[in-house]
């Protein structure tokens, strides 16, 4: 168990080094000279050259990469030339907003899908089961951009219930949160439903009932725990997918998170900002997957000892 964990961690570090390498190479392949963009259109050749030296772009690629990696190891994520401040500072502010949004979306989507999936599984074949299935099918087939627009159209433009743009109170988070969590909720509802249907067919459910345990207690305590196992494992992986959606959702709802930042940074050719934003997102993604694996061994007694 412990060895496996160490192995996983080692692999994770390797993967993250790979991510920095890809991000670095991609940014260097790109057209457009960041020094020119920084210096502005009116700059002379000398001024551009001056920027190039200050930004370290006159060095060989290898030196640039090693400098960057050296900085990361010392907790320095680089300097953002478009924000004129350290990348760490820009990212930390944005990261908090992304966290708020994803956790909110994840939370409501998880609760909603588990409830709906459980009820649908128990009431297999009933109208509510049909509704759940329909939601699951449609939710998986919907474009997140389109969903965002439709939400804005209905709740922002027509009903005027919710603000459509930017930060604010909880009501600002509702639409982007739903938009972000929709696809995930659909997948989880479907898994929860079929998981519950399968578990309720098991012998041990009848056996539990035969011991005099009431139907609701059997379903909600004894069967649910079994049905939840695969759901919990899937949660970590799904959180990663959710995270991918922030690029689009944050741009639609003008939410100042890391996704919106990445889009801006790419357009600005802010090399170090893009590299570090990609790295941070990957770290989150990899950590989620790791967490999911660990969680699985915790909740499933059959795995923990093997």
């Amino acid at each position: 168990m412990r060895n496996n964990l160490l192995k996983r961690l080692g692999l994770t570090v390797f993967v993250l080094i790979g991510v920095t390498l890809i991000a670095f190479v991609l940014m260097r392949l790109g057209g457009g000279d960041p020094a020119v963009m920084m210096a502005g259109g009116m700059a002379t050749k000398e001024e551009v050259q001056d920027y190039r030296v200050r930004m370290g772009l006159d060095q060989s690629y290898l030196v640039q990469y090693l400098t960057y990696m050296n900085g990361i190891l010392h907790g320095d994520l680089g300097y953002s030339w478009s924000y004129h401040t350290s990348v760490g500072e820009v990212l930390s502010v944005r990261l908090v907003q992304t966290f708020n949004l994803t956790l909110f979306g994840f939370f409501i989507a998880s609760i909603f899908s588990m409830l709906l999936g459980t009820i649908a599984g128990i009431r297999h074949g009933s109208p509510i089961d049909f509704v759940a299935l329909l939601f699951a099918i449609i939710g998986q087939s919907m474009s997140i951009v389109w969903l965002g627009f439709v939400l804005i159209l209905i709740f922002g433009v027509q009903l005027k219930w919710l603000p459509t743009q930017g930060l604010g109170g909880l009501q600002h988070m509702i639409m982007p949160g739903i938009c972000l969590g929709f696809g995930y909720a659909a997948v989880q509802t479907r898994m929860m439903r079929s998981g519950m249907v399968d578990v309720l067919k098991e012998d041990y459910v009848v056996a539990t009932r035969a011991r005099g345990i009431s139907k609701s207690r059997t379903y909600l305590v004894y069967a649910l725990r079994n049905a939840l196992l695969p759901i919990i494992t899937n949660m970590g992986n799904q959180f990663g997918h959710l995270l991918a959606g922030v690029v689009v959702v944050e741009t639609i709802f003008n939410w100042p998170g890391i996704g919106q930042l990445l889009v801006q940074a790419i357009n600005m050719r802010d090399y170090q900002l893009v590299q570090s934003a990609l790295l941070i997102t990957s770290i989150l993604l990899v950590l989620c997957n790791l967490l999911a694996d660990i969680l699985y061994t915790v909740v499933d007694p059959r795995i923990s000892f093997q």
């Binding site: 012998d203 056996a207 004894y222 725990r225 079994n226 196992l229 007694p301 059959r302």
Partner: peptide, 10 residues
């Protein structure tokens, strides 16, 4: 079937 009639996670 004792293999299926006991709940595996309790």
């Amino acid at each position: 079937n004792p293999l299926t009639s006991l709940n595996p996670v309790f």
